[in-house]
Amino acid sequence: MRVLITGANGFIGRQLVLRLLETGTLRGRTIDALLVVDRCLGALPEDGRLRRLPGDVTESAVLRRALADGVDVVFHLAGIPGAIAERDYELGYRTNLLASLELMQLLRAQPSPAVLVFASSVAVYGDDLPPRMNGEGDLQPALTVGAHKQMVETALVDLSRRGELDGRAIRLPSVVARPDGTSGLLSGFMSDLLNAFVRNTPYCCPVSPEATGWWMSVRCCVANLIQAAELEVDSLRSRRVWQLPVLKLSVAEVIEGLVELYGEERRSLITHAPNPQLEAAFGAFPPLRAPQARALGFSHDRNVASLIRNALTPPGAPRRGRPQVRVKESLQ
């Protein structure tokens, strides 16, 4: 089997590479070649199955080279984060929209439809969210990145209907814990909070303790991406886009979980200086249920303690012993 990952050297991409190299199989078949595309690939491990294809996905020649010998499964993770795409519209347009459409056009030329897993985003819903959601919310993007993700979802569904792709799109929430200050995401404070607490360094959080968000660890995210690829066509029931289950947690709940794991003495590390605009956009997420996705095997991190452990122990890394905490599973 030949598997392609775009954005392979990104935060999520690197962990997906490690997980696939560790398991060595996908969809019941051995992975013979793992093709990885990104502008820089130096952080990835040495492995005979890796085929490194350095380059930018906005360059058609890079995508054509990646697909020259055919692929069976594609994980399309490459993209420009929301804050950067908002500042530089042309960059976001070329990367998040045009490159995604070009990839799908090239995949159409294959003799048989490839499985395409597209990393979409909860940004498709916009800011004006209802009091409760079930994964069927209206799409009203408030940021360019959300508008582009919605457009790609539509193209993926159409090409899957035509039998030219076997597409699956999953809408990701904020995924933690990203390296400090490198994400370009407006929700980057969620990772910064975890990282500061673990390093035992002060952190001024730009939202209030009451701010609520949809949280997911990178370990859980990678498991959901693989689950999307594993689904068989007869289980899709004509659906091609899913809202993933999430943990809806307040910043205060996350801090309590960190205190339970790392000690009360660290609580004073965290102070708050709320940014009203940021909190309005990224601190008022309602409860969300995703029964259709859960029925297909997608999952969240269960509870805040598991979220923290999974966020700080990415795929491919041994789990380190931490204090045991009894926390009831979330019903979100």
Score class of each variant (00 low, 15 high):
193 L>A: 02
196 A>Y: 01
216 M>E: 06
180 D>Q: 11
258 L>D: 06
222 V>P: 11
170 I>L: 14
218 V>Y: 13
280 A>P: 01
290 A>E: 13
257 G>S: 04
232 E>M: 08
263 G>I: 08
176 V>H: 05
280 A>R: 15
248 K>H: 04
201 T>D: 06
270 I>D: 06
276 P>L: 11
217 S>D: 04
184 G>L: 04
236 L>C: 14
229 A>T: 05
300 H>E: 10
297 G>A: 11
170 I>A: 07
182 T>N: 00
264 E>H: 10
280 A>H: 12
203 Y>K: 09
270 I>W: 07
189 F>S: 03
294 R>A: 14
256 E>V: 02
263 G>Q: 14
234 D>I: 03
190 M>G: 00
190 M>K: 14
231 L>Y: 03
209 P>M: 06
272 H>N: 05
239 R>M: 09
211 A>S: 10
236 L>P: 00
298 F>V: 07
172 L>Y: 12
290 A>R: 15
216 M>K: 08
237 R>K: 12
188 G>K: 13
214 W>G: 02
267 R>D: 03
289 R>T: 15
271 T>E: 11
281 A>E: 14
210 E>K: 14
277 Q>T: 10
212 T>L: 12
254 V>A: 05
249 L>E: 05
268 S>H: 08
246 V>N: 07
194 L>W: 00
205 C>W: 01
219 R>T: 11
294 R>N: 00
226 I>N: 04
221 C>I: 10
303 N>Q: 13
296 L>T: 07
176 V>F: 01
293 A>L: 08
260 E>W: 10
248 K>G: 03
271 T>V: 09
217 S>I: 06
183 S>D: 07
206 P>E: 11
281 A>C: 11
181 G>F: 05
209 P>C: 06
226 I>M: 09
233 V>A: 13
184 G>S: 09
239 R>T: 05
217 S>Y: 07
272 H>L: 01
243 Q>P: 03
303 N>P: 10
269 L>T: 01
181 G>N: 09
218 V>C: 15
171 R>P: 03
272 H>G: 00
181 G>Y: 12
302 R>K: 15
245 P>I: 13
300 H>R: 09
233 V>I: 07
254 V>C: 04
229 A>Q: 13
243 Q>F: 03
300 H>L: 04
214 W>C: 07
293 A>Q: 09
